[in-house]
Amino acid sequence: MALLLPVLVLLLLGIMEFGRAYNAQVTLTNAAREGVRVMAITNVQADAVAAAKAAASTLKITDTNPTFTFTFTQGATSYTTCAAGRQVTMTMVYTLDSLTGIAGPFSMRGKGAMQCGG
């Protein structure tokens, strides 16, 4: 028992960390998709960030975590605004703290893309 229990506990903690990280990744991707949808329709970055934060309500959101990046492209050309025919991409970068403290914090990225104008 003394030899096997530490291995089983480490395995259990690893499964818990992986499950939590996977859940956070799915949440980030869905939040980025919701934020980019709002950005494509309204063209207001503050509303898109608010929608993404609301969609990621299960994560511990702070003022600086996650960070948001918007890019607007049409073909190979980059732009600074969302206009019809362009594609907007929203990237959320979130730092997930370790549940057990054994592993360091994890940097995770959620990304969503949609054509501007709906």
Rank of each mutant, 00 (worst) to 15 (best):
G85T: 06
S78V: 10
M16W: 01
I61A: 01
A54T: 14
M1L: 10
V36R: 09
M114L: 14
L4A: 15
A83D: 14
F72L: 06
T81S: 11
S78F: 07
F72T: 02
T100C: 07
N23L: 12
L3Y: 14
M92D: 05
M114K: 10
R86E: 07
T89C: 12
R20Q: 09
A46C: 00
A76D: 11
A76Q: 08
T67G: 04
P105S: 07
Q87F: 09
R86Y: 06
Q115R: 15
L11T: 04
N65F: 06
L10H: 08
F18I: 11
F72A: 07
M114V: 10
A31P: 02
A51L: 08
T58W: 08
P105V: 00
E17V: 01
L12M: 14
T58Q: 05
Y22D: 03
Q87D: 06
C116P: 12
T91E: 15
A31I: 05
L12A: 13
M90L: 15
T80P: 00
A32N: 04
A56L: 06
S98N: 09
K60T: 15
R20V: 08
V7S: 09
P105L: 03
T80S: 13
L59Y: 08
A2L: 11
R20K: 09
T69E: 14
L8V: 02
A24W: 02
